[in-house]
């Protein structure tokens, strides 16, 4: 089984999925991520699925679960780079990633995290 690497950039964890995910890898990633969030005190997790050709209900559920767990650990999850065909298929499948924030690409994902950070009550503008 292949493991998906998790990169750390400042206080953000970045996961870029480059393999055809089998269910075991998905479960392993879920565990690895929550451990790393706690260990690093990260405030954000970005999951890049630009290279992912399909998201079925299992992978979709994994994304939602990761987001929910991270939120409990005080980190926001952003899924970036979903392909149009994948998005259309997910909608047809009837799967909403409820609660998962999304951005078009990695850059916009990072910007979204910063924006969320700035929306704390003390921030002024």
């Amino acid at each position: 089984m292949e493991r998906v690497p998790i990169l750390k950039l400042g206080d953000i964890l970045i996961v870029s999925i480059q393999i055809d995910l089998q269910d075991m890898s998905v479960l392993a990633l879920q565990e690895d991520l929550s451990e790393r969030v706690v260990a690093t005190g990260a405030r954000g997790v970005i999951i890049d699925i630009t290279a992912v050709e399909i998201v079925d209900s299992f992978i979709g559920r994994m994304l939602a679960t990761i987001a929910a767990i991270s939120r409990m650990l005080d980190a926001e999850t952003i899924v970036v780079g979903m392909r149009p065909a994948v998005a259309i298929t997910l909608v047809e499948l009837g799967l909403s990633l409820g609660g998962v924030r999304t951005a078009l690409n990695l850059e916009k994902g990072v910007a979204l995290l910063n924006q969320i950070e700035n929306q704390t009550p003390t921030a002024t503008w």
Binding site: D23, I54, D56, F58, A85, T89, L93
Partner: peptide, 17 residues
């Protein structure tokens, strides 16, 4: 088409699982 490929592969994944 690309979208239909994605749909049928996703269906295959669901049913195989």
């Amino acid at each position: 088409s690309l979208v239909d490929q994605t749909k049928v592969v996703t269906a295959a994944s669901e049913l195989a699982r």
